[in-house]
Structures are given as C-alpha cells and as structure tokens.
Simulated assay, not measured.
Amino acid sequence: MRLYKSVLLAVNPDHPQAKQQVVKAGVIASHHQADYFLGYVEPGVGEVSFLDIELQLEEAHNAQQQKRMKQLSGLAQHSPQPVRAIHLADGDIAAQITKLAHQVKAELVIIGRTRHEILWLNDLHHHLAQKLDCDLLVIR
C-alpha cells in the first residue's frame, strides 16, 4: 500500500546517526515508492544564519553551504531509495522545515533525535506537529 508520495528527511549531517537516519528514511520512502528529499537547516535567528551574524562574510557562508552539500550528497549515497533533491536553508529550523515540506509537497516529514536534544526536540516536534499538513515521524 502506498501511503506517501513524498518523504522529506530533515537531517543534520554532523550528527553521528545521520547515515542510519538516511537509510531508515530511505527504506520508508522505498516501501511507499515515494519521492525522497533530504533537507538541512543551518541553525540561526530568523532568516539569518549564525555564521552570517558572526562573520558577516559571504565567502564563509558559501563555503559552509558547499561543505553541507558535499556531506549530504555523501549521505544520500547510502540510501536504498534515490534522493530526488537535497535542500539547504538558513535560519529558524522549525520554520524552514515547514517551508521546505510545503515546497516539496511532503506527505511525511521525518526528523531525527538524540537524548541530548530533548528540550530542543520537544520545541521542534511541537511546532512541526502544529504547522505541518502531513505526518511527522521522529527517529533515532
């Protein structure tokens, strides 16, 4: 049974479990024959990343985006389901994930969590549960 046509995984490529999260979400996307998207939001305030606030250098921002894209592309190679597109954003994590979910018409958004992010995750989970027009799955 095909429940989802489009799956978005919001993943932090620096997280030690990022590869496993990409694989898990890829299995889910594959099972549903869904378009599979990866997204990463560089944490920040509003629409401006911390990197821009601290350094005020476009070159540093571009270098960081290239690094993230390379990391995410490498992670995508481990997915059992081909990744249709990789998206990068800066700013408020919950707002940007919501925006990206709408953009790719996600029917399932998957986010990862760890024990060290419990307070942050509760805020993110709550915001996404309130704002998303689709299902939300939290994985480890």
Rank of each mutant, 00 (worst) to 15 (best):
V11I: 01
I86S: 10
C134G: 05
M1Y: 08
D92P: 02
T98W: 00
D35M: 07
D14Y: 06
H116E: 11
Q65R: 14
L128W: 00
E59S: 15
V45N: 06
V48P: 11
R113V: 04
A18R: 09
I28N: 03
V23W: 02
D133S: 14
G44T: 08
N12V: 06
G91W: 07
L57H: 10
A106G: 10
M69I: 09
V23M: 09
S79H: 09
A34Y: 04
A60G: 15
I118S: 13
I139H: 06
L119K: 13
L100K: 08
N122G: 02
V48W: 08
I110H: 02
L121N: 13
A18T: 08
I86R: 09
L128H: 00
A18P: 11
D133P: 12
R115Q: 11
H127I: 04
V11Q: 00
Q21P: 05
A106P: 02
Q17S: 14
I97H: 00
P43H: 01
K67T: 08
I110F: 02
Q81L: 07
P43C: 01
Q77R: 13
E47Q: 14
V23L: 03
M69R: 14
Q77M: 14
V109S: 00
A101L: 02
L108A: 13
L9S: 01
K5H: 14
I97N: 00
A60R: 13
D92S: 14
L55M: 10
Q66A: 15
Q64A: 11
K67A: 04
M1P: 07
K19W: 05
A94H: 00
E107N: 10
Q64W: 06
L3S: 12
A25Y: 06
V41D: 01
G112Q: 07
Q66G: 06
V104C: 09
L124P: 03
G74I: 09
L119W: 08
